[in-house]
Design a protein around this nucleic acid. Sequence first.
DNA 1: CCACTAATGGTAACGTGTTTCATTACTTCT
DNA 2: AGAAGTAATGAAACACGTTACCATTAGTGG
Lengths: 135, 135
Amino acid sequence: MAAPEKKTRSTAQKALIRDALASETRFVSAKQLHRRLEDDGASVGLATVYRQLNALGRSGDADTITIGETQLFRACAQSEHHHHLVCEHCGTAVEVDPPSEDWMRTVAGSHGFEITHHVFEIFGICADCRAAGTD
Amino acid sequence: MAAPEKKTRSTAQKALIRDALASETRFVSAKQLHRRLEDDGASVGLATVYRQLNALGRSGDADTITIGETQLFRACAQSEHHHHLVCEHCGTAVEVDPPSEDWMRTVAGSHGFEITHHVFEIFGICADCRAAGTD
DNA sequence: CCACTAATGGTAACGTGTTTCATTACTTCT
DNA sequence: AGAAGTAATGAAACACGTTACCATTAGTGG
């Protein structure tokens, strides 16, 4: 009675985008992915990349973070809640476990807030980039 | 010998923007502040609002967070590092103390990362908005 | 009061991301 | 297999926040 169950079709582009994202360990922007697909000889429209990336994010198959004004995506099997340690230089990301969620709840509760969500991302420079950049 | 000490002038607009921001307890966008100034009868260009807001953020006199694709500002006396508990509905924000920074350093270190910065904002609905919206 | 130049403000430009809409091509039905 | 129906695509137009440009205004120090 509820969801009209919009039926979805499987297309070549969807697979391409999904695969390309899965093959990345880093966080990538829609543009980066689009360019990568072009370089690989695939012909996918930028709009489609945005659409699919958003769809993946919505369905929980991809994680998204925002740096500056650009949205970055990354394939993410585990749908559990987790955070990231992101290299500002190369985009490499490591998933880390959430910190004390109790602490948050306590703080929020003491101010009468009801938590809806939170963002917690740690940025830094990974060992590789540090080694490469130190000269 | 170092800093060329660019000399800065005090203008009416700067004061207006600074005051307007200081009079807000919430996080506000550049546009919101600009509109508020207009409503107050002040005539300040939008570009100037952006410039000053950015300047305040850069100098540490204002905190900034990003919701969606808009940047929000809030006057912030204490230049110490801290985080926020923000009401998604009305923008009201409470400053909260940082969580275990040790934890971060440990996690980062174990992955060879050198932390540059981190973002940690908790979003929720404050008691007032909850009361008002619950009908 | 004058000269110097930081600061302003209207607007054009920019970048990211979304929407539009005609076209393409999956699916299903026959 | 062929036809029909309709998601999905893609190029370009659009929306929006923010910044750049540049002529004008107005602090500041002599």
